[in-house]
Amino acid sequence: MIAEVLSDTGVRMDKAVEVAKEDFAGVRTGRANPQMFQKINVDYYGTPTPLGQLAGMNNIEARTIVITPYDKGALRDIEQAIRDVPNLGANPTNDGNVVRVSLPELTEERRKEYVKLVRTKAEDAKVAVRNIRRKAKEDLESLKTEVGEDDVARGEKELETVTKSRIDAIDEALKRKEAELLEI
């Protein structure tokens, strides 16, 4: 029973770490990255749809992305959705077949804003991991009558080890992203 709780907790914490890494990938650096555009919601025939489901994206230059929609009727909607994204500073152009997105060079002030944003996302991920730990701890406490206090205490120590490893993974991803953002 304790092993099941710890296994489930580990899986849920891994998902929280992956979400944090995906969020980090969505924050732009000096280079254009198609992942930045994956989660942008486009109003596609009245339904908010992630851009990654509507179009293929290619990096053609360091700061330029070409977005090729699967449905040419969505070109204007895609262009508008990209233009409406705050903090992106992108300038999309539509040539009738593809949308070209040129990203301006990041200023030092902008880089620092992005570092703050990434730190906030990292803290949110750590809070998610801690909430998962709290729930697992409650589950372990409820098993005390069935398996005994000693086994629950060992389970809680293992839970702390699992939690620390996931928090460290988030910190490591944060450190890499900060270095990437501050690189000129």
Rank of each mutant, 00 (worst) to 15 (best):
G73I: 02
Q38Y: 14
E138C: 11
A179R: 03
K126M: 10
I82F: 00
R76M: 02
L182D: 03
E108F: 01
K121M: 14
D139W: 04
A74T: 08
V5K: 09
K126V: 12
E79H: 10
K164W: 10
P69H: 00
E79R: 06
Q53M: 02
K144E: 14
S142A: 11
R130F: 15
E146L: 04
D23A: 10
T64E: 09
Q38W: 11
E178I: 00
F37I: 06
V99Q: 11
Y114K: 15
D139F: 03
R166Q: 14
N59D: 11
Y114F: 15
A25P: 02
E138A: 12
E105M: 07
L103F: 14
E109C: 06
V85E: 13
K144R: 14
T163S: 02
V17Y: 08
E178W: 03
I67F: 09
K15Y: 11
P48D: 11
P104T: 05
K175Q: 05
S7A: 15
L51K: 01
M13S: 10
E172C: 13
T145Y: 15
R130L: 13
Q53Y: 01
I60W: 06
K144V: 14
D23V: 10
I40M: 07
N131K: 15
D124H: 15
E22K: 05
L182I: 02
A32H: 04
G155A: 15
M57F: 13
N87V: 12
V127L: 07
P86A: 08
D14V: 11
I184D: 04
S102K: 04
A16L: 04
N91F: 09
P92I: 01
N59R: 04
L51S: 02
P92G: 01
E183G: 05
E4Y: 04
A3C: 08
R154W: 04
N91T: 14
K164P: 05
D8P: 11
N33R: 07
L51E: 01
N41Y: 10
P34K: 15
D171R: 00
M13N: 06
G73F: 01
K39N: 11
